[in-house]
Design a protein around this nucleic acid. Structure first.
Lengths: 209, 209
DNA sequence: CGCCCTGTTGACAAAGGTCAACTAGCGTGG
DNA sequence: CCACGCTAGTTGACCTTTGTCAACAGGGCG
C-alpha cells in the first residue's frame, strides 16, 4: 500500500528500458469518484499508484455487481485496447493516486499490434471481458441464473453438470431441478449429458427479462 | 467452434509478422484428460485450437471449484510466465486439439521482459491469479465465506459493505450479521466503516480451518 | 446543524443445501 | 461383443440458511 514513485513504477521502468516515453500522467482522485463507467467510450487506461478501486458490472436486472478489487500496481481499463466501450465501472473507494494515458499513446507505448506479447495481452484481455462472473444467491433464484447462463454460454452443453453447477454457485441437485423445470416449460431439451436450448423466448422469460 | 488452422492461428500470424518461430506444437487431447494440475510446476503454456476446457481451483475445504470455461482461440497456463506453479487445474471436457509450448520457448517468443506489452501482460496475469473467485452459497455458510474473505483480502477494510457483500455473493444484511457474529467471537473489530482483524486464529476457526 | 445515505437489527417465508435412494450411460475387462 | 460395475446425474423429503421487507440509527457531507 506504499506510494509507487515513478522511479520504481513498472511503467516508467519499462519505458526507460525501451527508450520510449511513459504515456501516463498522474491524476489524484478523491474517495467516491468514478474513473470510468461501463458502456462509456473507452478512451483511456489507468494505472493505480495508491488506493483501492472496486470494479462492477451491471447485471441483467440493472443491479451493480462487484467483480473485483484493484490495488496499487495494477492497470485499469486496459479493455480500451480491445473494445470500443468499457466493460466495467471503476469506483474509487479510497483517496487515490491514479495515472492516466490516452488510448493512442497507450497503444504506441505497447508497441506493434502484431508482436507476440501484445497478441497474448489482447487475447487475455478479451477473455477477461467475456468471462462471466460466478453467480451467487444474491443474483436471483437458481432457475433465473441457470436460464441466464444457458443464454449467455454457447459452450453450456460442452461442460459436465458438476462443473456447470459449481460455476453457477449451486449444488448439482439444484441444477438438475432447475433444468427439469426449464424442460417442463419447453425452454430447453435435456438429456443426462446434453442441454439444447429450443425456445429462446421462454428462456428469456425464465431469466426474468 | 471451427478448427483453427495454423495459417489463421493468431500465434503463427504473430510469429510470421515478427519473423520468429512459433513455439507451439499441436497435441490432440481426449475428453476427460487434464492438461495441467494446480500446484504442479508450471513448465508449459497451451493454446486451444478446438475443444472446451474447464479451469478449476481447490477451495480451502478441498473441493474443486470451477473458475472459468475456455474455448478455441485462448491461451491456457499463461501463469507459467509469472509463477513457478499452476494456479488452476485445466480439465478438457471434450475431444480437443491443443498446442503446447515449453516455457523457455514461450518466453523467447514473447520478447524482452522489459517491453511494455510484456509488462502489461504479466501484470494482467498476476492480477488474474490473485483475483479471488466470487463466493456462492455452495461454498459454505455466509459466516465461513466472510471469515475466509477477511483472511484473504488485505483491502477488506477499504471497500464499502455494499460492495463487499456483492463480492461475497450475499445480501448486505447477511454480511452485517456475519460481521456482528465474528465481532462477538472476538475475531474482528467492527465499526460502521471499518473491519479490523484482531484474532487470526478465531478467524481461521470460523473459516472452517 | 440537519438531511440523506449506508449500514444495522428484527421477524418471517421460502429457496436451496443436504442426505439418501435410485438409474442411466460409459468404460473396462472377460 | 456383451456383461458388469462404477461414476455422474436425477428425484424425493426435510430442515437450515439466508434473502426480503421494514423500521431504525450513525456518520458524512453540504
Amino acid at each position: 500500500m506504499n506510494a509507487v514513485a515513478c522511479s520504481s513504477c513498472p511503467c516508467s521502468r519499462a519505458s526507460n528500458g525501451q527508450r520510449v516515453r511513459c504515456p501516463f500522467v498522474e491524476q489524484p482522485q478523491r474517495a467516491g469518484s468514478v474513473a470510468y463507467v461501463e458502456g462509456d467510450r473507452a478512451e483511456r487506461v489507468w494505472f493505480v499508484k495508491i488506493g483501492t478501486i472496486v470494479l462492477t458490472r451491471w447485471a441483467s436486472d440493472h443491479t451493480e455487481t462487484p467483480v473485483a478489487v484493484r490495488g496499487p500496481g495494477t492497470f485499469l481499463g486496459l479493455e480500451a485496447m480491445i473494445t470500443p466501450t468499457y466493460r466495467e465501472t471503476a469506483r474509487v473507494t479510497t483517496a487515490a493516486r491514479l495515472c492516466v494515458a490516452e488510448r493512442p499513446a497507450m497503444s504506441a507505448w505497447l508497441g506493434p499490434a502484431s508482436a507476440p506479447a501484445r497478441v497474448a495481452l489482447e487475447q487475455t484481455l478479451r477473455v477477461r471481458c467475456a468471462d462471466p462472473v460466478r453467480a451467487a444467491a444474491a443474483d436471483g433464484t437458481a432457475l433465473r441464473r441457470v436460464a441466464r447462463w444457458i443464454l449467455a454460454t454457447e459452450a453450456a452443453c460442452e461442460v459436465p453438470r458438476q462443473f456447470a453447477a459449481g460455476f453457477l454457485g449451486i449444488a448439482p441437485e439444484t441444477l438438475s431441478r432447475a433444468l427439469a423445470q426449464l424442460a417442463r416449460a419447453g425452454a430447453i431439451e435435456v438429456t443426462r449429458t446434453t442441454i439444447t436450448p429450443c425456445d429462446r423466448g421462454a428462456l428469456q422469460r425464465a431469466a426474468g427479462d
